[in-house]
Each structure stands twice: as structure tokens, then as C-alpha cells.
Design a protein around this nucleic acid. Structure first.
Length: 794
RNA sequence: GCCGGGGUGGCGAAACUGGUCAGACGCGCCCGACUUAAAAUCGGGUGGCCCUCGGGCCGUGCGGGUUCGAGCCCCGCCCCCGGCACCA
């Protein structure tokens, strides 16, 4: 018997798999009948960072690998692709810092990570590899953008946008954490700029609907995060008239029932009313307040504001309410103006107290209206409905819905991204680049340094173009797209990666998608996962695909932490797989990361467990070789060891497929190997050894393949996943637990076929039970078939 | 404040539908075998307290409840993690 030498056998089997194209899965032939045994296994595509992979990636992709192997061997056609989220700031910043071209840096990083992935032996169909920076890919990103543009779902507008002063670019709401740029940590500023937006708000209600296919399932917390982010509130829009100016100001309220309690009126500093009509003093306040960040405004303990010099009329009772400007009212929610009801709103109350404004109660302690004229006595809900109905008759109000969700600003003032295929023409306006001129190639430039304007704008030769509409002089759009545009559709390209005449073929995506199982971090809950759903719903409405959700089942792996915090480059606690793989091999590394704990929980990385895993692999190696030499062939497969093997098959399959639990199967196989090593020459030893090897294959495919050969077989990766022999799972005897008053007093081996009465009689034969029931009155006897007998005495 | 997820040995954890003295599997620790010795390897032990060595009592964040029986269900708390938040 040779020593277990991970390095040698891993290299050998990886070569075999590659030569055999073991994990290549072709698309079905056109017109092939639909089947329900295909599986799309997807993990979030990696950003090709200069650090290579960290253990979080290893966890993520190994989990996907285990599912892939089990499904494949259970008879499913499993597509399991890989690709690269290749555009983005880090490579561009590295190019500025260290010289070189972002493309070279990115492609070098891709090569490193691809090599790491191959070294780990993951069952990836490399024929489907795509990269977002490849013109063959971003041509279709541009093409899809134009579809959104044609449908009015991509548009330009001037708006206050989040500007990162460090990265010198606009960033999306979704990637701002506590007012700071998620990527570089700089304090984000608000700037008024003309930017590109996707009209995600047009899909707000649909994004609240999780239109998952049968069997689909998303974690509750992720749905909650998305619902909170979309922030739907039902209410009413009510028009308040400024009589002296002859204009109306609309407000949004969820509490129309409190309309009689409105005692003043407030507009946001940015509200157009202020600049047009407010007093000098109010305008000065607004200029000052509007320049402050929302966080600072929120942190302010004392309410501030200024009377504008005008009044509105309450449409329900004709009362004149003073219009104030105050920074506690936000321009980007509702209409930017509110009716203030200090009796029933904490913030309005604070404001009223500060400025000595009146407070009128209109809801009593039973939740009924008062001081509300003919509506008095109505429950709040009905009151709101009745008041809005009345206003609607007068054309002064209507029920409406407001959302927290904003449109997705996706133009970026940086170089390393997908160019926006739009031409700006003085005569024709925004003109789409014709389809046959795609892709608009990202030009080569020398200077990526951000200077407040996009680097592409400095490239005169590239910028100057003739208008596709009128042929006159025009200019290209110098912004590039947010990388989250690239990743909002990559899962569609994966299944049809070589398509030269369309981003994807509808039949092909309809065959494979929605993704059967998606695995990735919950940090993308309000970003990538929401954007991808928006894309798919829109593309469905364009008639390009036949489903409305991209991901049927979603799973979030926990963070792999070091020193109690998430691994990150800035914290310097990034740990990759390379050292571990070099010392112990890919199989040990894969087992290690999955054995760490439940995959959906955060876990502290430690290599303490490596010893246990390596011991297990060595024991497996030794025992299987012993079995191969000593165990008789063709013995009838029964007895305790055979039963254990069958139970292990059932446990491992159920844990992986149904429970999505990856660490307990390893324990189960360890138990089986322990029992096997007690008698490796005995009956059923060969069956037990084959079972152990077969079950560990998804986790440790190399050693499994090698030992499968030791046992005289070939091509384990193609062998059917074991199925437990039901007959073996049904035991002839079981352990009968006998309790008195719920406390275990004795245990028996009993036959499965015994009746309840027989079980009770058997239980009564125990002297240890008799000691507790003799002389006492048995008031009740509980019999749980195949489990226990419980005497209740007293 | 609103919403979601959690609290089990020295540590990571298991216990799937309320039913096998709760703690599988692994780490660590202790003991033993091999060795001149150590390392490596292999085997055994390992929740706490008490013990006349038969066993007894206690134990899943805290307090109650339901049940023959609760880590699991219900009520009330405490603590931790995450999302939203001057959102009208």
C-alpha cells in the first residue's frame, strides 16, 4: 500500500477529468422535449481581485461543487458555469498606482484564480467561461441597455446623486454604507449631475412579488431586506392650495385620518416652492440646510426651520396653515412636503413645541376620530378612507402609494467599465448606436486618473463621432456602466455563451432557467439580487424570456471571518487556500472549509480542524486498502455494518439535497469509517468501503476516485449516487426505552413486530422499572411504537 | 421604534416531525501503546456536582406555562447579530 499522497493523485485525476471532459454539459438539441431532470447550479461570479480567492470563495464554490456532484450522479443534467466580474474600480486603481493597463491586471488576476479553481478540482464546465470585460460579452450588455433605453426604462436626468470624492465617480444608493462609499470608505457627497438611471421604480410592486417557480424558496430575511428597501407605503396624495399665489402643493400622507389635526405645513429645503416663493430668510435657511448631508440632518437633535411667509388652506376645513421650511422633511420621499399633525406625529410634535405652534388632537384613546366634524367617532381606518373619498370628489386628493426605492443610477465617471452606446447630437438628442455597430469598444487610453470628468472624455478622437440619426457632428457618452449592470444578466449568458447573434437564445434560457440553486453573500440583497430580478422581469416584458424570477432557490453562505471580523484586504486578514492546498491537498481543503460548521452561519476560520480531516483521510485510505486486500468479494450484504452503510447513504443524501447541510454528512461518513475499521476483513466490509468512498466523492473527489480504483472500479464521477436499501433501514429490533414519569429507567432490545400490550408486558419485566411502579398506581401508560413505553404513576 | 435571524460542554457544533439517560462528529485536554526519548501514529477517556463505584442529583440565556414527556410548542423577559429608519 502506498502512502496517501494528495498532491500526486490530485494532479492525476484532474488530468483524467479534463481529458474526459467530465464536467462538460452541452445544451439540449433544438426541439428536444422538455424534461425535469436538469439543474442549473450557480454561485455568484467572482471579482478577479489581485489577492486571488479567500476562504469565503472556497466555501461558496465547494458547496456548489458538492451539490453539482450529487445531482449529476443522481441522474440530473447539471450545468455549472464560471466567469468573471471583470470590470471595476480596483483594477483601474491598481493601474494608476502601479502602472500597467487595467485589462492586463484583470486578466492576470483571472489567470491566477482560474488556476486556483482548477487546483481545487471543482466540477466546472469551463467551455462556458465568460468575462464581463470581453467585447464578446459587453457587446450584449450594450445591446440589452439599448433595449431598456427603447422601452423608456433607461433614461437620463439631472438629480442629486452620490458622489465619491475619492473614486471621483457616482455610486448607487445600494452600495453606500452609513454614508460612506462601500468600496473605499470615503464620505459620500451629494452632487447635482445629469446621470443615467434604470427605472427600477417602475417595477417596485413587481419586485415585492416573489414570483418563484414551484419548489422555489428564498430566505425570509432576504425577502424582508428587499421589502424594507423597496419600502412601500399606502396612503393618499392631498392637494393644499396657496390661495394668494394660486398654486397647489401636494403632500403624501399615510394618515389622512388626522387631516383635521394639521396645524401647520412643511416643505423640504430643496422643494421648488422655496426658491420660487419663500421669504429671503427662508431661502437662506434652505440653502444652508440643503447643503448638509442627510445623516447630519438626521443626527440633529433640535428641530430647525423658518416660516416662508405664506399659508396653505386645509382642503377639508378651510383652515389657513403657515408654510414652514424645515430640514426634517426630505425632498426625495413622498412629495417633499407634509401636512404637520403634531398631536399624532412625534417629529411634528417636536417642531411644534420648538416653535410654539398649536396642537389639536383628532384621534381618541380608542382610535376613533374626534374634532373632525362629521367624521367624529369613525375608527381611524374608516376615517382615512372617508376623508380621502370626500377629497377625491372635490379633486383635492386620491389614494396613492409611495416607495422608498429610488431609480438605479448606473453611469460612472471612470474608465474600466462597459461604454454606454449612446451618441449625443445637438439636433437629434440622445441617439442609440445602431445594433450593427456594437460593440462600442472601450478605447485604449494612457491616463486613467480621475479628474472630476470621465477619462474617456479626454479622448477627443474617440469622443468625436457622426450622429447615426442625421450624420452631423456628435459626441459619444463618456461615462461607463456600473459593473452591476454586467452582473445583472451574466447568468443568462452562461447558458448560451458563444451566441454571436443575440445575448442568448430564448429556448436555451427557458430550458435552464430559473437558476435551480443560487449561492452567494447576503450583502448583495439590495444590490445585485434586486437588480437581477429587475432585469429578468423587464426582459420578460420585452418578450425575450419566459420566466419572471432569475433564481428559484437562494442560499446565503455565512462569512468566513478571521479575528472576529469579515475577511477584507483593508483589515489585512485575508486567508486564501494556497498554503492549505500545498500542504494538505485540495481534498483536505475542501473538507476542511465545509466541516467548519453550518454553511449559512458566520464562522471563524481556524485550521485547527485540519488535523482531524487529514487523520480521517489517512484512516479512510488505510482502511480501504485493507478492505481491498482482505475482504471477501460477493458476500451477502447484510448485518450491522451493511445497515450502518445504508443509514449513512440516507443521512448524507437527505442532508445535502433536502436540508442543505454540508458538515453533518462528513460526520456521518466518519462514523461509518470508524465502524468499518473495526472489522475491515468482515462481511459487508467491501460494501461499506465502497459506500464510504462513494459518499465522500462530492467533497473529496480525488481521493475518492483513487480509492474507487483500489476497490477495483472505474470512473466514480459517473457512477450513480447510492440509494439506500429501504429493507436494510427497517430494523428488526429496536431499543425500547422504558420511562416512569418521563424518566428513563431501562432500555430493552425489542422486536419490531410486538404489539403495544406485549411492549408494556416486556417493560414490566424490568426490575429497575418494577422498583418504581410496584406498589404505586399506574394511572396511565403511554406507548410510542418503536420508541418507548412511559408509565405514569402517582 | 418597525421587521428578520439567533443564544446548547473548554471550543466548532449535533439532536430533522415534541419521544433513545442532550452533547453525534471534530478540535483541545487527560491516560495508555509503540519508542532510549520526543515527534508522528494508533487505542481509550472527557457536561457539572456527589458517590458506599450499584448509582444519585443537576444541566440547552432567564422566569412561567402546556404535556405522560420540552433544546424543540405557548406567554413574559434578557442578551447578541442583521435590515430599515426625521420615510410623513
Amino acid at each position: 500500500m502506498d502512502r496517501y499522497d494528495a498532491k500526486t493523485i490530485e494532479a492525476r485525476w484532474q488530468r483524467v477529468w479534463e481529458d474526459a471532459q467530465a464536467f462538460h454539459v452541452p445544451n439540449p438539441e433544438p426541439g428536444a422535449p422538455a424534461d425535469d431532470t436538469h439543474w442549473y447550479q450557480l454561485e455568484m461570479l467572482p471579482y478577479p481581485s489581485g489577492n486571488g480567492m479567500h476562504m469565503g470563495h472556497v466555501l461558496n464554490y465547494t458547496m456548489g461543487d458538492v451539490i453539482t456532484h450529487v445531482r449529476r450522479r443522481s441522474g440530473w443534467a447539471v450545468v455549472r458555469p464560471m466567469g468573471w466580474d471583470a470590470f471595476g474600480l480596483p483594477a483601474e486603481n491598481a493601474a494608476i498606482r502601479e502602472g500597467g493597463h487595467p485589462r492586463e491586471i484583470t486578466e492576470r488576476n483571472i489567470a491566477t484564480i482560474r488556476a486556483q479553481m482548477k487546483r481545487l478540482g471543482w466540477a466546472i464546465d469551463w467551455d462556458r467561461e465568460v468575462s464581463s470585460h470581453d467585447p464578446g460579452y459587453y457587446r450584449w450588455t450594450q445591446w440589452l441597455f439599448l433595449k431598456f433605453f427603447e422601452h423608456g426604462l433607461a433614461y437620463r436626468k439631472e438629480a442629486p446623486v452620490n458622489w465619491c470624492p475619492n473614486d471621483q465617480t457616482v455610486i448607487a444608493n445600494e452600495y453606500i454604507v452609513d454614508g460612506h462609499c462601500e468600496r473605499c470608505g470615503a464620505l459620500v457627497e451629494l452632487r447635482n449631475m445629469t446621470q443615467w438611471f434604470f427605472r427600477t421604480t417602475a417595477y417596485a410592486d413587481e419586485l415585492l412579488e416573489f414570483e418563484l417557480p414551484p419548489g422555489g424558496e428564498w430566505p425570509e430575511r432576504t425577502k424582508t431586506i428587499q421589502r424594507n428597501w423597496i419600502g412601500r407605503s399606502e396612503g393618499a396624495e392631498i392637494l393644499f392650495r396657496v390661495d394668494e399665489l394660486g398654486i397647489d402643493i401636494p403632500v403624501f400622507t399615510t394618515r389622512a385620518d388626522t387631516l383635521f389635526g394639521a396645524t401647520f405645513f412643511v416643505v423640504a429645503p430643496e422643494h421648488p416652492f422655496v426658491e420660487a416663493h419663500a421669504s429671503e430668510e427662508a431661502q437662506a435657511y434652505a440653502r444652508h440646510a440643503g447643503a448638509r448631508r442627510a445623516e447630519d440632518r438626521a443626527a440633529e437633535t433640535e428641530k430647525t426651520g423658518v416660516f416662508t411667509g405664506h399659508h396653505v388652506t386645509n382642503p377639508v376645513n378651510g383652515e389657513r396653515l403657515p408654510i414652514w421650511v424645515a430640514d426634517y422633511v426630505l425632498m426625495d420621499y413622498g412629495t417633499g412636503a407634509i401636512m404637520a399633525v403634531p398631536a399624532h406625529d412625534e417629529r411634528d410634535r417636536e417642531f411644534a413645541d420648538t416653535f410654539g405652534l398649536p396642537v389639536v388632537e383628532v384621534i381618541d384613546e380608542h382610535g376613533r376620530l374626534l374634532n373632525s366634524e362629521r367624521f367624529d367617532g369613525l375608527p381611524a381606518r374608516d376615517g382615512a378612507r372617508a376623508i380621502v373619498a370626500l377629497l377625491a370628489e372635490q379633486g383635492r386628493g386620491e389614494t396613492t402609494v409611495s416607495y422608498r426605492l429610488r431609480d438605479w443610477s448606473f453611469s460612472r465617471q471612470r474608465y474600466w467599465g462597459c461604454p454606454i452606446p449612446i451618441v449625443h447630437c445637438e439636433r437629434c438628442g440622445l441617439v442609440a448606436v445602431p445594433e450593427d455597430e456594437l460593440p462600442v469598444l472601450l478605447p485604449e487610453i494612457e491616463d486613467y486618473q480621475p479628474k472630476g470628468k470621465p477619462p474617456l472624455a479626454s479622448n477627443e478622437e474617440w469622443m468625436r463621432v457622426s450622429c447615426p440619426g442625421c450624420g452631423g457632428d456628435a459626441r459619444r457618452d463618456p461615462d461607463t456602466m456600473d459593473t452591476f449592470v454586467d452582473s445583472s444578466w451574466y447568468f443568462l449568458r452562461y447558458v448560451d455563451p458563444h451566441n454571436g447573434h443575440a445575448p442568448f437564445d430564448r429556448d436555451v434560457v427557458d430550458y435552464w432557467l430559473p437558476v435551480s440553486q443560487y449561492i452567494g453573500g447576503i450583502d448583495h440583497a439590495t444590490g445585485h439580487l434586486l437588480y437581477s430580478r429587475f432585469f429578468v422581469k423587464a426582459l420578460n416584458d420585452f418578450g425575450m424570456l419566459g420566466f419572471r424570477e432569475p433564481f428559484a432557490r437562494l442560499f446565503h453562505q455565512g462569512w468566513v471571518q478571521m479575528g472576529g471580523t469579515k475577511m477584507s484586504k483593508t483589515k489585512g486578514n485575508v486567508m486564501g487556500p494556497d498554503d492549505l492546498v500545498a500542504e494538505y491537498g485540495a481534498d483536505a481543503t475542501r473538507l476542511c472549509i465545509l466541516f467548519l460548521g453550518p454553511a449559512d452561519q458566520d464562522m471563524e476560520w481556524t485550521d485547527a480542524g485540519v488535523e482531524g480531516i487529514v487523520r480521517f483521510l489517512r484512516r479512510l485510505w488505510r482502511v480501504v486498502h485493507e478492505v481491498a486486500e482482505r475482504a471477501p468479494a460477493d458476500v451477502p450484504v447484510e448485518g450491522p455494518l451493511a445497515r450502518k452503510a445504508n443509514a449513512t447513504i440516507a443521512k448524507v443524501s437527505d442532508d445535502i439535497v433536502r436540508r442543505f447541510q454540508f458538515h453533518t454528512p462528513i460526520s456521518a461518513v466518519m462514523e461509518l469509517v470508524h465502524e468499518l475499521s473495526d472489522d475491515p476483513g468482515g462481511p459487508a466490509a467491501r460494501f461499506a468501503a465502497e459506500t464510504a468512498v462513494s459518499l465522500i466523492q462530492p467533497y473529496a473527489p480525488h481521493i475518492a476516485e483513487e480509492l474507487w480504483q483500489t476497490l477495483g472500479h472505474e470512473r466514480l464521477w459517473q457512477q450513480p449516487w447510492p440509494v439506500a436499501d429501504e429493507a436494510q433501514l427497517v430494523q428488526e429490533t429496536f431499543e425500547l426505552v422504558v420511562q416512569v414519569n418521563g424518566k428513563v429507567r431501562d432500555r430493552f432490545h425489542a422486536e419490531v413486530g410486538l404489539s403495544e400490550d406485549e411492549l408494556v408486558e416486556l417493560a414490566k419485566t424490568s426490575p429497575r422499572v418494577r422498583a418504581h411502579i410496584d406498589g404505586a398506581q399506574v394511572r396511565k401508560t403511554i406507548v410510542v411504537p418503536r420508541k418507548l413505553v412511559n408509565f405514569v404513576v402517582g
